[in-house]
Design a protein around this nucleic acid. Structure first.
Lengths: 230, 230
DNA sequence: CGTCAGGTTGACGCGTCTCAAAGTGGGTGG
DNA sequence: CCACCCACTTTGAGACGCGTCAACCTGACG
């Protein structure tokens, strides 16, 4: 189950590993285990003590927080190259579970911290990744606080397209591995509103809906909605 | 205008400086300028090229993003000890302006990066701060996406109280230096709803409103609302 | 005393939620 | 191969929370 080699890892270029040279990479690989989760499985849960960090190798995860009455907010989706876990916080801040099959590199928190401690480029890379994550979170706050349902869906689609193309998964059809309920809980909507808005965008010729995703027919219109130009 | 000494800086304990020893602190002080902004002044603006990092010394800033049609989302308020600026991103991701008078330590991006490059404890501290920031952002997403107006206001008050007490500014009266419009744009509400909700909480005996802030009369009730237990 | 920014309150409308029902497709067992 | 089930999605009708628009209040300042 261990990764054949980090050398030809498909997530190599985007992950923290990008900051390491050959020797360090082999050393880090010693610390890591390659783990796999089936669709729907929980990788870790909010408020549990964090004993490991993870780097996503393949697949999609939903990261979410729950309120006591079971309202859910999906704070993000993790894709290959994303790093999960925050040094300096003892507990997991959110839960993570697999959307479809997922594989991850798992690092014991302690030994990873020791490894990173003396490697400024790795730490810099982590600051950088955290910064990108933070920027995405802030952009998402604008979406949640100040956008209409239609703008939310359009923004989500455009943002998802850009993230996928950023890791070399761009294509004609935009795959949406997550369910409508996941999208709703990500955008602060209900499942019905998500469904209705998808339908409206299809009626208006902006998208075409398939079982596995959508095709952007009128990209400029979608981008305009996404930017908030009414 | 330069800080008398970092040694007796009131924000010392919470800021990135906490990671530095005496020698390093003096070296960093060489790089920094102490700057002051009057109420309402803009420290930097979204999408401008970032040439400096900042560490808040005193006062409160609002950090916000604007949509083209001038809808605004305040992504957070910065307090003493907070670090502004993200290594790895060339542009400012949001605008920042002073809420009341503010003083900051300003570091030229280049020289700060050079200084940090070889100091793992500083980098670790930055990862840590970024992590805390990210955790706050995710908590705020829950608020924006899944909470009612009353819960939003209660959460905001409780969160603000906790942040202030975290930097030694706790007290009977909870000062709110920002305007109603700022609170509205932070919580994804309108100014009228904020005002109405404040009034309702006061009618219900949860808070008492003053010109400069509020007093929490029924803290358990406020915390319950904040936690989302109906 | 007038002005002005900020805050409060009320009446009404709209966008989204809620509740309900029907449609779709994939999987399983007869 | 069909019948059935189940999870998921779509669609509709009505309710409701919050936004919109407008009026009024308050205190600071000249």
């Amino acid at each position: 189950m261990h990764c054949r080699s980090c050398h030809d890892c498909t997530a190599r270029g985007f992950a923290i590993c990008a900051a390491l040279d050959e020797t360090e990479l082999r050393e880090l690989a010693q610390l890591s285990r390659h783990v796999r989760f089936e669709s729907g499985a929980t990788v870790f849960a909010q408020a549990n003590i964090a004993t490991s960090f993870f780097s996503v190798h393949a697949g999609t995860l939903r990261l979410y927080k729950l309120l006591p009455d079971s309202r859910r907010q999906i704070v993000g989706f993790a894709l290959p190259g994303d790093f999960l876990g925050l040094p300096g916080l003892p507990h997991h801040e959110f839960s993570a579970d697999a959307v479809g099959r997922v594989t991850l590199c798992q690092f014991p928190k302690e030994s990873f911290a020791t490894f990173a401690e003396k490697r400024p480029q790795l730490l810099r890379r982590m600051v950088e990744l955290a910064g990108h994550e933070l920027a995405r979170a802030q952009e998402h706050m604008v979406l949640l606080g100040r956008r209409s349902a239609e703008e939310k869906i359009a923004s989500f689609l455009i943002g998802w397209r850009d993230r996928l193309s950023g890791i070399g998964r761009g294509g004609e059809i935009l795959p949406l591995p997550m369910k409508r309920l996941d999208i709703a809980d990500h955008l602060g909507l209900t499942i019905e509103t998500v469904s209705r808005t998808f339908s409206k965008l299809e009626r208006d010729g902006v998208i075409q809906i398939f079982a596995s995703g959508v095709v952007l027919l009128d990209t400029p219109r979608a981008e305009a909605l996404s930017a908030g130009v009414s």
